[in-house]
Design a protein around this nucleic acid. Structure first.
Lengths: 123, 123
DNA sequence: ATAAATTGTTACTTAATAGTAACTAGGTTA
DNA sequence: TAACCTAGTTACTATTAAGTAACAATTTAT
């Protein structure tokens, strides 16, 4: 039996994986992406991690996996309607994070932001 | 040099520790808490983890540690002004999590929520 | 004098998470 | 035919995070 102190822990359970928000941010920006596109966009992720994180997001009904019956295989991932409901949360978290990064840079810390900006996901 | 893909990762760096949001939620509800009070309110946390998470939150300027010059020692933790800026984010994440938990319970999963509800932190 | 309560530290162990690298399998291209 | 692309799997290893348990230092209560 899963036990939480606060409901926010459920949110972190779902978006807290090392690569999950990166995947979600990309799918929020671009609607749908093939496995290979995701892999190219996230340079340091491994095949195994990518598939693993996608599976978990799919299991949690956040993303949809659509298989095209082709060869070479084609699989596209997109947000489910339920996954879309995370958009506001993620946007607000992005905003807070952007301020945090700005603050830390002002304090002399060296931080680098890699992926391009986009309406709705403002870095 | 710290490298992020999206600024949201900075947010998760700060609130993503296993016990950090629990601590933050409590401090959002109750203004300030002594070490021992926090420990009592979070039954499964160990002394080491509690102090460790508090130190990291303090280092990130999210909470303030106030030492009273007494014996036996008295130390109180509270949100800094910057820490308060997390309130909106955490509230929204709580809301989403509450819906998620409701959904999962409807689907037959067994989940238990432990800490009492409060305005602003609605479980 | 002893025990308890306070906040905190330390060395060590265990569990969870992530990374490596090689492999499958079908089809396409050179 | 050999090399390549796609999406995915698997066994294994490394790294990180978290838990255990004992200890310190101070003062009050018994």
């Amino acid at each position: 039996m899963k036990k939480y102190n606060f409901s926010i822990e459920a949110t972190l359970d779902i978006i807290g994986g090392k690569w999950k928000i990166v995947i979600l941010c990309i799918l929020m920006m671009d609607q749908r992406k093939r496995t290979s596109e995701l892999k190219r966009m996230i340079p340091n992720i491994t095949q195994k991690m990518l598939i693993q994180q996608l599976r978990e997001l799919e299991k949690d009904n956040i993303i949809l996996r659509k298989v095209y019956n082709q060869s070479p295989p084609k699989v596209e991932y997109s947000l489910t309607e339920y996954g879309e409901s995370l958009t506001h949360v993620i946007d607000l978290m992005c905003d807070w994070g952007a301020v945090n990064i700005k603050k830390r840079i002002e304090e002399g810390e060296e931080i680098q932001l890699s992926l391009e900006e986009h309406d709705g996901i403002r870095n």
